[in-house]
Design a binder for these strands. Structure first.
Lengths: 219, 219, 219, 219
DNA sequence: CATGAATGAGCCTTCATTCAT
DNA sequence: CATGAATGAAGGCTCATTCAT
């Protein structure tokens, strides 16, 4: 109940949330410290005080976002590792899609991470190790199970890329999708249908690959 | 008049190319007119003279990039429409990947378009209609052939998204891929292998879907 | 009928007229050579070619305007110097007002001269000698006749200022008049009424001064 | 806080005064923010900080000038409304002239307002209502008293224009007067003489009008 | 004679950051 | 700890003018 400490913590948090929204909307360069401070109800010098400079604030926002996202949507949807690999893949895809496209607040996490892909900053290294790698490893282990012991690592990697790419497409290409596929919705029902399709598409492909059927594979 | 025009076209073109590189690298806001003019060996006022303002230059760059990309890599790889759908899909994917990831100059086309996805400008509308839609329609027609007359449009759309998503992943997530999958290369051989995998993965999935195997997808 | 000469003279004249309008509207600094050339249908370099630079064009416009105004409205309305001084003053005021406020084309002469008062350029010297001084001398001679031989030059000068000031007010303060006296019109009828009032007001004052009445004069 | 505020008010005020001089000398467009800041001893960004932009500074200068002018020279010279109308008119004219032509610092008030007449900005509306209208109403009431109850409002308005026009002439036409009437001075004594003449001239005219002498005005 | 592409100076504005209080 | 006035660099844009053709 130390007023100063509490109010200071408040300011820090408000700054973090305001910055998240504005960085997500306008990017690092497009965002202005002034607007962030105004939206946070803080003084213009607050950013320099709490985060040293604009970049320090940005780093803090990225970490905050990654932590929050993983807390809300644990990797793999928290599915029991003893479940069949098929179920684990379905859970993984569903959770991944929700984490990306959940329209509930705060909605700016994913947008920030998308930006990092296109115009990486120093924050991407940290993000890759603490946020992305665990998810990637989880997916690889699922796919290794599905593809069987005979599958070489290259094939696993390529399949992982195929699964993740199908999901991220709906995050990264939203503006274009809105124009070319206006019938594509992203409410809860549509998200479930989408997760179903991606899981289906991927599981069928993987099953076929494992079976080693010649169909279409080697022309 | 010819000579003047040619020399003027030179300045215009140099401006266009310099702007393409710098817009791709730093984005619209991050790019500075000064740097563009310096790299083009032109006066600071040249942008205003030839393109009215920074935004006019940006629009011209986007159109130039789209036109160039389609000229170098025609939609669907120029595959004969009478070829089997399977072959047409392979050609489509291969050409699409090359268009996205070709490391030869000018390499900035795709990057610009990626940026438009994350932070769309007014140029995206034009791009969607003249550049993206024809490709999307081509892909849909191939997939409709592959899925057979019984497939409903939603399924076709979702499969198109799956195919395109697998390709774009390697464009949009390059910085993250470099960190998580350092073994993934993008030279010509790797690109061919990648195209092979994506086509394989997709064709197997589609064949399985068409065959109507049990939803669980384990044949 | 030498085409080049004619077309060149045409260009010069069109430039002069376009410049007059635009200088009157935006002032010397506010006017742009580009807009002037566009309105005149001339090349961007035409001003430098025909008038050396922007200032040369401005000087030429001022001279053109003064000459045109005096040609259309001769000093004193061309009244016979043998007419009674009263009639000559009425004619002078009426012509002066028309010259200032005539809404017919080209309407920009007066506006340019007003500007010269507020922000004089080198053109004002020329204008004072060739345009304003003859009018001032004419007015002084009329007033000297009206005030009689006993009037000292100071009194004549002050009365001239009173007459001219009453007229110019409607030129220089038009924007303020429109706001404070919206009922004040400037069509032909209103101009005649205005000229009547100013002449009346001035003649009554002068007559009273000449009569040397004590009324209100020396408190 | 007081000290800070005082020092800040200092910068603000210095900016206001420097801007007043420079706007008066070169007009809104001709004035440069750089020169204003230099003369005020302030940073180039100070204008943006205190007044948002150049136009905001201009508006503030106009209001400052109008307020200052009315504070130093109250409308009508603060003459007792119970004084005879004749005395009130003399006081009005004298104060009006001083307000216009006082050569003491700050001398730029009137010049700015003159400019607004020739090239009005959005500031003129505000100026008309808060600065000019009260003076106009005061003058009308004096003239209505002088002209008597039989005078119609048109006549009152025209007479007001005659009085004001005689005063403003010496403000608006100063550069031309200097050339044509070099003997006209504007020191205190000359100003008093000028005010005397204008009041005299006007009172005689009005008295004659009220007396309804023949239209020819020769008594 | 006329063109129009090219020039370079300069203007207003914005921004992240600092520092005295 | 917190404030907000002040800073200085830099950015986009406009303009009059020039010069090769």
């Amino acid at each position: 109940m130390h007023l100063t400490q509490e109010s200071s913590a408040d300011t820090r948090t408000r700054l973090l949330e305001a910055a998240g929204e504005i960085f997500a909307e306008h990017g690092f360069r497009g965002a202005t410290v002034r607007e962030i401070c105004e939206r946070a109800g803080a003084n213009i010098a607050a950013v320099n005080y709490h985060f040293r400079d604009k970049e320090g604030l940005y780093r803090a926002v990225i970490e905050f976002a990654a932590g929050y996202a993983l807390a809300k949507y644990p990797i793999g949807g928290g599915a029991d590792p003893k479940l069949p690999a098929e179920d684990r893949l379905r859970a993984f895809i569903r959770t991944y899609l929700y984490r990306l496209l959940d329209e509930g607040r705060p909605a700016w996490h994913g947008k920030l991470i998308s930006r990092e892909m296109v115009e990486p900053t120093a924050a991407l290294d940290h993000l890759a190790e603490t946020f992305a790698r665990p998810q990637y490893e989880r997916l690889r282990s699922i796919l290794a199970d599905l593809l069987g012991p005979a599958a070489d690592p290259d094939r696993v990697r390529l399949c992982a890329a195929s699964v993740v790419g199908q999901c991220l497409f709906h995050k990264h290409c939203r503006p274009m999708i809105r124009r070319l596929m206006p019938e594509q919705a992203y409410d809860t029902a549509a998200l479930d249908a989408l997760a179903g399709h991606i899981a289906d598409f991927s599981l069928r492909a993987i099953a076929s690959i494992r079976a080693g059927a010649a169909k279409g594979a080697t022309p």
